[in-house]
C-alpha cells in the first residue's frame, strides 16, 4: 500500500516574509492588521445571543461585541478566521498532512492530552482577552506598528512558556 509522503515544511523565513507582506496589505487596504481571538469571541457572543439573548447582553464582553456588529459574518476578523480554516484545510490536504489524530508526547495518554489541551485553551483565551489580543492580533500586527504592548506581550509569552516548558516536558518528550 502506497502511503502518501507528506511534503516538507517551508523555510520559516519565507513564511515570515510572506506573512509580513500579508500584514502590510491588510494595513493598506483596511487600516488594521490580522486577528484571531476577536473572531472567537464574536462567534461565541453571537451563538450565545441566539440561544440566550438576555445572558449575552448582560455580560460586557459579549454585549460590547453585539452592540457594535450587526452580524458576525459582516465582521472582518470572523471572515478572516473562516479563511484561515479554509487555507489550513487546503494546505493540509495538498501537502498530505491531513490526518485525524491526537498529537501528543509518547509518555502520556490521549485522554491526558485532551484534558491538558482543554485547560490550556481556557488559560489562553482568558489571557488573550486580558491582553486584548493574541499572537496574530497583538504580537504580529501590533509588533509591526511598534506598539509597546505587543512587544511586552511577546516577551511575556516567551518568558511564561520557557519557564514552564521544563515542568511540562513529560507532555511532549
Amino acid at each position: 500500500m502506497k502511503t502518501k509522503q507528506a511534503y516538507p515544511y517551508w523555510n520559516p523565513y519565507i513564511v515570515g516574509v510572506g506573512l509580513g507582506i500579508l500584514i502590510i496589505l491588510s494595513f493598506v487596504v483596511t487600516g488594521r492588521g490580522l486577528g484571531a481571538i476577536g473572531a472567537f469571541n464574536g462567534l461565541l457572543a453571537s451563538a450565545i445571543h441566539a440561544i440566550a439573548p438576555d445572558y449575552a447582553m448582560s455580560k460586557a464582553a459579549f454585549s460590547n461585541y453585539l452592540s457594535g456588529v450587526e452580524h458576525p459574518l459582516r465582521d472582518w476578523v470572523v471572515i478572516e478566521i473562516v479563511g484561515v480554516c479554509i487555507g489550513g484545510l487546503i494546505s493540509g490536504v495538498v501537502s498530505g498532512r491531513f490526518k485525524f489524530e491526537v498529537l501528543k508526547g509518547p509518555r502520556i495518554s490521549n485522554v491526558t492530552r485532551l484534558i491538558v489541551a482543554f485547560s490550556g485553551g481556557v488559560l489562553m483565551a482568558f489571557a488573550a482577552k486580558f491582553t486584548r489580543g493574541c499572537t496574530s492580533g497583538l504580537a504580529l500586527s501590533g509588533g509591526s506598528v511598534m506598539s509597546p504592548g505587543a512587544w511586552l506581550f511577546m516577551i511575556s509569552v516567551f518568558i511564561g512558556g520557557y519557564s514552564v516548558a521544563f515542568l511540562m516536558r513529560k507532555l511532549w518528550n
Binding site: 490580522l34 484571531a36 481571538i37 472567537f40 478566521i81 484561515v84 498529537l103 491538558v116 489541551a117 485547560s119 490550556g120 485553551g121 481556557v122 488559560l123 489562553m124 483565551a125 482568558f126 489571557a127 488573550a128 486580558f130 491582553t131 486584548r132 493574541c134 499572537t135 496574530s136 497583538l138 504592548g149 511586552l152 506581550f153 511577546m154 516577551i155 511575556s156 509569552v157 516567551f158 518568558i159 511564561g160 512558556g161 520557557y162 519557564s163 514552564v164 516548558a165 511540562m168 507532555l171 511532549w172
Partner: peptide, 22 residues
C-alpha cells in the same frame, strides 16, 4: 500590567496546548 501578566499566562497555556488561537 495586563499585557505582561496576560502574556505569561498565555505562554503557560501555549506550552500546555502547543497551539495559539490562530
Amino acid at each position: 500590567w495586563p499585557q505582561v501578566i496576560g502574556g505569561v499566562i498565555f505562554g503557560v497555556g501555549f506550552v500546555m496546548t502547543g497551539l495559539c488561537p490562530g
